[in-house]
């Protein structure tokens, strides 16, 4: 029972990570990777699959233009809602595979001065492999070290050059993440991770743009980024409830600022600091089923919305081999 719960966590976590990291960044700035890169310290055993389904409601009514926080009645309040299906598969006990595909819908509140149509569609399909290198008792607690490699790429031809309604950055992304966690016997744990995000180019539908100078091409260079995350967590109620506080930082390594009262574009240098809270609960009565809820908000940033998002999700985990065995038995 306890094992099952923990397994599902991975999936949950994954889901949550997507929501946490991803949405924000994705929204305006291109961070599909983040979203799809599992960054927790949990592993699913071999031959287990966890499916996740979450709904995320994000919103902002101000954004940073460079470092200046402003409102803009042309876009008023922008809502971004995301449905995220995801699957986590235990290939080996120390090697998990993840796949995810968010569906995103954006729109401005009424009234607004711009009368722009929002956007909707499937965003980026993401794949990730997570490998657990260390999992051992150290002192009175348990130390875990992992590495994750992720890749995501646009699933549809959505237009990334349509800020702030674009549903994603429109560029392929490759990420490498290192994760370390230490859990005390009291079931308090601390986790930290660092990742580098290599973002490719996104193709606009115009062949000229300004990025501190003229560019005679439709290709826009989406800046690479570093991201750091620190998480404080605690298991409660016989390991059925998990609470986490998170802090995330993302910093682009290049890029330009949004110009005065002008639209953002994929080439912008983005930075943000975000804090979040999440709770995950695993039902004792229904084997393999869990729920997750979270809230995040950006507290500081550059060329990003002052975004907050709240999400809910369901996870269900099952053992592929075992199920087949049970079926056979019934016959």
């Amino acid at each position: 029972m306890k094992l099952n719960k923990r397994l599902c966590f991975y999936a949950f976590k994954k889901d949550r990570v997507l929501a946490l990291y991803g949405f924000l960044a994705l929204l305006f700035l291109a961070t599909p990777l983040d979203a799809q890169t599992p960054s927790d310290a949990l592993m699913m055993p071999s031959k287990n699959i966890c499916v996740l389904f979450s709904y995320d409601m994000g919103t902002f009514d101000r954004y940073w233009e460079g470092s200046y926080l402003r409102s803009n009645e042309t876009i008023a309040t922008v809502d971004r809602n995301t449905v995220l299906p995801m699957a986590a598969i235990g290939i080996l006990d120390d090697l998990n595979f993840y796949v995810s595909l968010p569906y995103v819908k954006t729109e401005s509140s009424e009234p607004n001065g711009g009368k722009f149509a929002g956007a909707r569609g499937f965003q980026d399909i993401g794949f990730a492999l997570k490998y657990r290198a260390i999992h051992s008792d150290v002192g009175t607690g348990k130390l875990t070290a992992l590495a994750t490699a992720g890749f995501s790429t646009p699933f549809t031809n959505y237009l990334s050059d349509y800020r702030p309604y674009s549903i994603g950055a429109g560029a392929p992304e490759f990420s490498l993440r290192a994760i370390g966690q230490y859990e005390l016997s009291s079931q308090f744990y601390f986790r930290a991770s660092v990742a580098h995000l290599w973002r490719g180019y996104t193709e606009a539908e115009r062949d000229y743009y300004y990025n501190n100078g003229s560019y005679y091409t439709a290709w826009m260079d989406v800046p690479n980024a570093w991201t750091y995350e620190a998480i404080l967590g605690k298991w409660l109620f016989d390991t059925s409830l998990k609470l986490e506080l998170s802090y995330t930082d993302l910093t682009s390594t290049s890029g330009d600022d949004i110009r005065a009262y002008n639209a953002a574009q994929p080439t912008n240098k983005i930075e943000f600091d975000r804090i979040g809270f999440s709770a995950q609960y695993f039902f004792k009565s229904i084997k393999g089923l869990g729920v997750v809820a979270y809230h995040n908000r950006v507290v500081n940033g550059r060329n990003v919305p002052k975004f907050s998002n709240t999400g809910f999700g369901l996870t269900y985990q099952f053992n592929v081999i075992k199920k087949q065995t049970e079926t056979t038995d019934e016959q």
Partner: peptide
């Protein structure tokens, strides 16, 4: 598996380098 995955990703990214001219 892990190394292959990373190698594939890096090759993919490298192959995507684009020329972004600033004048004709």
């Amino acid at each position: 598996i892990y190394i292959l995955f990373i190698a594939f990703g890096l090759i993919l990214l490298a192959s995507c380098e684009k020329d972004t001219p600033q004048y004709i």
